[in-house]
């Protein structure tokens, strides 16, 4: 059971990672980021309840809150970029280079 839960968690993590690295649309990348963070939550919640460890469970809650804060920041940045009229595509963000 443990292995499968951990397997799901790692798989989701890798999926999120793939989304961040491979996708071009910023919103999709943001989703990937969230997926990564919440996949860790899965593992933490499961392991915490397995060992009846309140620390892990409360950690999961806190991580949720922090992830939410991160989404707020990310979304507002993306919206600001979008507000300039340009489509939010990461390949367009290539003026800073070298």
């Amino acid at each position: 059971m443990t292995l499968s839960i951990w397997g799901v968690s790692v798989l989701l993590f890798l999926a999120g990672l793939a989304m961040v690295v491979l996708r071009r649309q910023l919103l999709a990348m943001l989703l990937g980021l969230e997926l990564m963070i919440n996949s860790v939550n899965i593992a933490l919640v499961y392991t915490g309840s397995l060992w009846a460890d309140a620390e892990a469970l409360s950690a999961a809650l806190l991580i949720l809150a922090i992830a939410a804060a991160e989404v707020v920041v990310g979304l507002s940045l993306i919206l600001k970029l979008n507000g300039a009229g340009a489509p939010v595509d990461s390949s367009g963000l290539s003026e800073l280079k070298g």
């Binding site: 990564m36 963070i37 860790v40 991160e70 963000l93």
Partner: peptide
């Protein structure tokens, strides 16, 4: 904004790695 977005995503990925 370009710099901020790049910083955000790279930093966010790093934080997620930290979490794992």
């Amino acid at each position: 904004y370009e710099g901020a977005v790049k910083y955000f995503f790279a930093g966010g990925t790093a934080s997620a790695l930290f979490l794992m």
